[in-house]
Amino acid sequence: MLEIKNLSVSFKDKDVLQSLNLEIEEGIIVGILGKNGAGKTTLFESLYQSQKYSGEILWKKQKLLRENISYLETENYFYPYITGREYLSYFAKDKLLKTIELAEKFQLPLEKYVQYYSSGMKKKLALIGMLMLDKPINILDEPFNGVDFEGVHLLYDIIRELKQSNKIVMISSHIIETLFHTCDRIVILENGLISNIFEKSDFEKLNHFKFS
Rank of each mutant, 00 (worst) to 15 (best):
G27K: 03
I168S: 05
I168M: 08
Y81G: 09
A103C: 04
K35E: 15
K52G: 10
E73D: 08
G39N: 06
K52R: 13
K5D: 09
Q62S: 12
K200N: 13
Q164I: 09
H174G: 06
E142H: 03
I28N: 11
Y113K: 12
K12N: 15
Q49E: 10
S201H: 13
N166V: 08
S173N: 12
Y113V: 11
F211S: 04
E104P: 08
F78L: 01
L108S: 05
I4E: 02
G120M: 07
T41I: 12
I188Q: 01
E177H: 13
Y79D: 04
K135S: 00
K93L: 05
E190Q: 10
F106R: 15
K63W: 14
E142Y: 03
F11R: 11
M121Y: 06
E150R: 15
G129A: 00
F198M: 02
Y71S: 07
E25D: 14
E86T: 00
R85T: 05
G129C: 01
S118V: 04
P143A: 09
K205T: 10
V147P: 08
E86I: 01
Y79H: 03
S173F: 06
T74K: 09
D157C: 08
L65N: 13
F203L: 07
I32H: 04
Y77A: 12
S50A: 13
G39D: 07
L43N: 00
L43G: 01
I137C: 07
K105W: 14
F11L: 13
S46W: 01
K167W: 00
N6A: 13
L17R: 00
K105L: 14
Y81M: 13
L179I: 00
V187C: 02
I194R: 00
K98H: 14
S10I: 10
I100V: 13
M170H: 06
L65S: 14
I100F: 11
I139L: 14
V16H: 05
K112F: 03
H181V: 09
N36Y: 10
T83L: 02
G84A: 03
D15V: 14
V30G: 01
F11T: 10
Q49P: 07
E177L: 09
V147G: 05
L133A: 10
I128S: 04
Y48Q: 05
D15Y: 11
T83C: 03
S19C: 08
M130R: 05
I4D: 04
S19L: 07
I128A: 07
I137E: 01
I188W: 00
E101D: 15
D13F: 10
